[in-house]
Design a protein around this nucleic acid. Structure first.
Lengths: 202, 202, 202, 202
DNA sequence: CCTTAATCGAGACGGTACGTCATGTCTTGGG
DNA sequence: CCCAAGACATGACGTACCGTCTCGATTAAGG
């Protein structure tokens, strides 16, 4: 009555989507974006290239989807302590044994010249992660924990940018120590919070 | 005998180096690393592929050289004012009508899978730019303008990371306003400088 | 009881057979065997590929059926005059605005690598046409119109082979003049018939 | 001075042409036109697909060339005896252990829908073979061995057509006996030669 | 001055991946 | 069980790119 008349014909098998995305994620980690080949994806997941191309129009589009599925940001942390919350946001980038950030770095450049894909990637992957900091900082402002005149948009982008940079430019994977340094040396001081803890002994 | 015995035969024509590098820089800007092809470089500069490969062993190596030639960081600014110096460091990323940062972003991921080239790129291009902030902050510490216990290494990386991120992930070119925001909203507060100026009215 | 127990379920709709065969014949003429695709057949006749494959096991088998349905040889001519009969046999190849011969040519090579289909094609299509000449010549021998020691098997194959050759190798469709030439310049002289008519003035 | 300035750049290596053509001929015989794949040709001759496509624009064009190289008709026979000459013409179709005729049959249909290739094939392969009969019959007419009013064009096409037909439609390879039958049962009688030999005892 | 040796533009070469298309099978929902 | 629609595995097609090699022609240095 209302609507919802399904398209005719055999529907796309959703199980295959997952198999393709899993194979893509694996190869993306193992080989990187350049060396990942569609034939290899097809071979690994037992699907055919036609099946892949029925779902995604290009290699880049497939990889963007795979990344979006791989990189699901956790819920906004709320421990009651601002520092703890910020650390938790940072630790989200270390999920999947660090593969999260790896994939982020690999894809940013690949989507550079396709505005549509870049936007898709940003919406699906980049923004949600940066959004963790947005949320934590915005809540802190609401609660009066930090000064109200701060440029929270800019501050929320500090950690994502630095984590990305560290991996992409220095090929150094992110550690808990790195997260602490950014929070304690940059974010908290910039927020005007007095509660800078005693520096962790090396 | 001891030295100076030049190789026999016709020497490499140094003028061609520049033509190749110029063509590479242009195509790098127009097309990005992936879509830049060696055939296109050769075609554009009127050289042959053999001529290019006689000078650089791979596409990536060529592009790293082109980037290094394109991105000559200016001398460390020393205006006497910390904020002015930091702004000057940031403006260095906007040289060449913004191409400086563009190329930086395009190349960082490309060198991901070749440690040798990544290091070459870092030494020739990335570090010199980040070094501007290192130098300015180190000098400020020496002069006692900022607290001595700050994590200057981390702070020096804030702006490069954010500039890179903005271009690569958001495809938004850098403006003078962006530089001011990072300096005023992040760096100066984190340095504990009281002299935060009144926000520039738009 | 003994027989006639129909298969359970809905029976195959025989009307669809004709639609499929018609579409196949059309495409066979328009595109030839190689470029005829099962999807195109299905699309043109509004059927689905499954419906086609329920009836024929392969593209070649379908096309052989389509050809058999298209090419129904006429009854053996018997005008009382040997030359007239031979001409009538030849004109049979020009039926359907020349498509008869077209399809014959298109299919012969296609069945080369499948003995079963080749045999099916030969029995259903090729032989009946060649059989016209067999019958006319055999009857002439019985009637004593031609010498009894002739190799009628070979002679019966002359016209089919030459018609086929003309179309396949020369892409020249058959004309009434062509039929006359083969009958008058080859068959009748080889049969030892004196009654070679005066050459038709152009 | 005069002319003949070679094209610039590295010339096509003619040895590779032969390797490609040889591999194509082998595969054409082993697999037939349909099942011959460009990758298989490349693999077998150690060349790359790009190298093949630099020389021939399509699979069909390559195979036509391979056929032309494979099927070099022998010189026009001239034994002094018309029957011997005709038999020799027919035997030419049996060269290469029968592969000659096989390839002829395989290709005729393939070139059906590309007029350019069909013409190329006809000129390079089909006509030269049929031309043997043309030459022998024309010479016999000049020498007054046969009646001057015969339709030699049609007669010259009889054997090629029948040989082709036998292979394509009946999948029966040509034997010396087949040649004799066509010459003795069709050609010589049609030429009005009295010297029909005693039938070969079976 | 003339030989030598390496450079130059041009472009062929082997390899590898891309994205498209056709065959024949399988899977939907709906008669 | 049939039917239309269309997904599925397989595998060939023809294109593009990389890095190497091979041409004839040029150009510097050294004997």
């Amino acid at each position: 009555m209302s609507s919802a008349s399904r398209a005719p014909g055999r529907p796309l098998n959703p199980a295959i989507d997952d198999q393709i995305l899993n194979a893509t994620q694996d190869l993306l980690i193992e080989e990187g974006f350049e060396r990942l080949s569609m034939d290899a994806v097809a071979r690994r997941c037992g699907a055919s290239k036609a099946t892949i191309y029925r779902r995604w129009p290009s290699k880049t589009a497939l990889v963007v989807s795979a990344a979006a599925a791989l990189l699901q940001p956790p819920p906004v942390p709320d421990t009651g302590d601002l520092r703890e919350d910020l650390l938790a946001c940072g630790l989200a980038y270390m999920q999947q044994e660090g593969r999260t950030l790896q994939v982020l770095a690999n894809l940013t450049t690949a989507t550079q010249h396709d505005p549509e894909l870049r936007e898709a990637f940003r919406e699906a992957v980049s923004s949600p992660y940066a959004g963790l900091f947005d949320a934590v900082l915005g809540r802190a402002a609401e609660r009066g924990l930090i000064r109200p005149d701060l440029d929270l948009d800019t501050l929320a982008r500090v950690f994502p940018a630095m984590a990305y940079q560290q991996l992409a430019a220095q090929a150094r994977s992110l550690t808990e120590r790195d997260v602490q340094r950014v929070v304690d040396a940059v974010l908290l001081p910039a927020l005007g919070t007095n509660a800078v803890p005693a520096p962790t002994s090396l």
